[in-house]
Nucleic acid binder design. Structure first.
Length: 292
DNA sequence: AGCAACAAATATC
DNA sequence: GATATTTGTTGCT
C-alpha cells in the first residue's frame, strides 16, 4: 500500500482512529507504571485485541507496545536523570531503536511585519477550512502568502478551534474556502511529501519575540525534543525561558511549528494548548514515522 | 496582571 | 532517603 493510500485510511473523516488512539494514550499515561497489556487495553475499550492492534499500527506505524514506550519517555527521561538529552537519545537508553533519517517537513517561513500583528490582522483576508488529520479534525487558515494557522477541533477540550484562532487576529476577514486549504492539509500530514524541492510556505504573524521563538522551534528535527531553556539559550536570551514558554504556547500553526517538541527541563510534558494527550500523540506518531 | 518555566528550599512520606 | 509542594525570580505580552 502506498503511503498516500495509507494516510487516506488514517484520516477517516469521522476521526475514529484518533479517538481510539486518544483513549488508549490516556489509559496508558494514566498508569504507565503498570504497563497495561494489549489485551487489557482492548478489553477496556470493548474491542478485540487484534482489531485494536490493527487500528493502532495503521495510525502510528508502531505497535501499541512500542508506542507505549515512546510516550513513556518523559518518565524514562526522569528515571535516567539525563540533562538536556534529546528525546530519542533517552528512548535509546530504554531499549528503543534510534531515529530514522527522515527529513522533517520542509518549510520556508516569512514573518509578517509587526504592523500587521499590531493591527490585529486588519486588512488581512484569511481563508479557512476543516480537514481530517491523524490528530483529529484540523482547522487550517491561509493567507495569500501561505499557511498562517493550524488548530485542532476537540470537543473534549471545550474550546472552539475557530474562536481560538480568530481571536488572535480579530480584525481579519474570514472566508470559508475548504478547496483552497485542502492541499495544505494533504501536504502537512503526509510525511511522504515532506521534501525540500517543494517547500511549504508558512507565514508567521506575531510579535518579534514570538517569531524568533517559533523559528527556533522549527529547527528541531522530527521526533526530537528540547527544553524551554534550550530554546531560550538558542535565541540568545538564556534567562527568558518563561517568556519562551508563553510564546511557544501562543504558536498559531501547531504541528508545523512543532510546539509539541518543547518539554520541561525534567522531561515532563508540561502543557499543551490543544490538550496534553494530543501532544503525546504527536510525539509518539513522529517516532513511528521515524521508524517507517 | 498573567503565563505551556526554573531552581532552590521546605515539607512530606 | 527519595518525592511533593511552595516560594522567589524571571522576561515578555
Amino acid at each position: 500500500m502506498t503511503v498516500a493510500a495509507r494516510l487516506h485510511q488514517d484520516i477517516t473523516p469521522d476521526g475514529s482512529d484518533y479517538e481510539t488512539v486518544r483513549r488508549v494514550i490516556e489509559m496508558i499515561t494514566q498508569d504507565y507504571r503498570s504497563q497495561p497489556t494489549l489485551d487489557r487495553l482492548a478489553a477496556d475499550l470493548g474491542q478485540s485485541p487484534s482489531q485494536l492492534q490493527k487500528v493502532f499500527t495503521r495510525w502510528a506505524g508502531l505497535s501499541p507496545k512500542a508506542f507505549l514506550q515512546a510516550v513513556t519517555l518523559d518518565h524514562a527521561k526522569r528515571l535516567l536523570g539525563t540533562e538536556g538529552l534529546p528525546l530519542l537519545d533517552a528512548s535509546f537508553e530504554v531499549g528503543y531503536s534510534g531515529p530514522g533519517r527522515l527529513h522533517d517537513l520542509f518549510v520556508t517561513h516569512e514573518a509578517m511585519s509587526p504592523g500587521v500583528w499590531k493591527a490585529r490582522g486588519e486588512g488581512l483576508t484569511i481563508r479557512y477550512g476543516y480537514h481530517p488529520s491523524p490528530f483529529g479534525l484540523a482547522l487550517i487558515m491561509i493567507t495569500d502568502r501561505g499557511l498562517a494557522g493550524l488548530a485542532f477541533d476537540d470537543p473534549s477540550l471545550g474550546k472552539d478551534a475557530f474562536e481560538d484562532m480568530a481571536s488572535r487576529w480579530p480584525k481579519a476577514r474570514y472566508v470559508e474556502d475548504a478547496a483552497a486549504t485542502a492541499p495544505y492539509a494533504a501536504r502537512v500530514f503526509d510525511p511522504a511529501r515532506w521534501q525540500a524541492d517543494e517547500p511549504l510556505n508558512v507565514v508567521l504573524i506575531g510579535s518579534d519575540f514570538q517569531i524568533r521563538v517559533w523559528q527556533a522551534l522549527m529547527q528541531i528535527p522530527l521526533a526530537r525534543a528540547c527544553t524551554y531553556s534550550d530554546l531560550a539559550r538558542k535565541i540568545g536570551q538564556p534567562t527568558a525561558s518563561r517568556a519562551v514558554g508563553a510564546a511557544v504556547g501562543r504558536n498559531p500553526i501547531s504541528f508545523v511549528v512543532p510546539c509539541h517538541r518543547a518539554l520541561g527541563k525534567s522531561g515532563d510534558l508540561t502543557g499543551y494548548h490543544w490538550g496534553l494527550t494530543r501532544k503525546r500523540a504527536m510525539l509518539g506518531w513522529e517516532v513511528g514515522q521515524g521508524q517507517a
